[in-house]
Amino acid sequence: MQKALVKVKGWGKLSINTKVYPLQTLYSAGYAFMDKAYVYLDTEPGGRVAVWIYPKAKGAKLETLAMEFSEELLNYAHYFSSLKVNAESTKLLLQRALFSAAPSLAKEAEEKEIQDLIKELEQEEKDEQTKAAKKKKRT
């Protein structure tokens, strides 16, 4: 098993697989760590990212920091995946809330939908006419 934490001159290096933890997660975890540690990111072979951590507080243990960083990674990975899963529901809820707050918005949306449908039908009719004209020319 790959050693999780490598210590170099007071710095701790974690090797993170970006297939498991996307970059967005790494940046967010790094940001959450700004008060506790200095964070530097670098690429590594095999789609991995090296996260270098240096504690800001004297006497802070690298092992503890590394474990806290891993926790933060999981926390943000969960946050972003939930965000993705719930995106559609959130959108629907927001729309409903906005519409109930201003009924005119619902009416506007309905009118827009009708206009779009009319345009679509007109376009279809045009396409059919063009097709028929082409057919007539051939015969």
């Binding site: 170099v8 001159k9 007071g10 710095w11 970059l23 530097y40 990111l41 670098d42 690429t43 990212v49 270098w52 240096y54």
Partner: peptide, 23 residues
């Protein structure tokens, strides 16, 4: 403190940033 990932350059020390990670 020593920074292990600082690169020695003929003009002095410098930090190397991967463009994918650091726009």
């Amino acid at each position: 403190m020593t920074i292990p990932f600082l690169v020695s350059h003929k003009a002095g020390r410098c930090l190397k940033f991967n463009k994918t990670l650091y726009p």
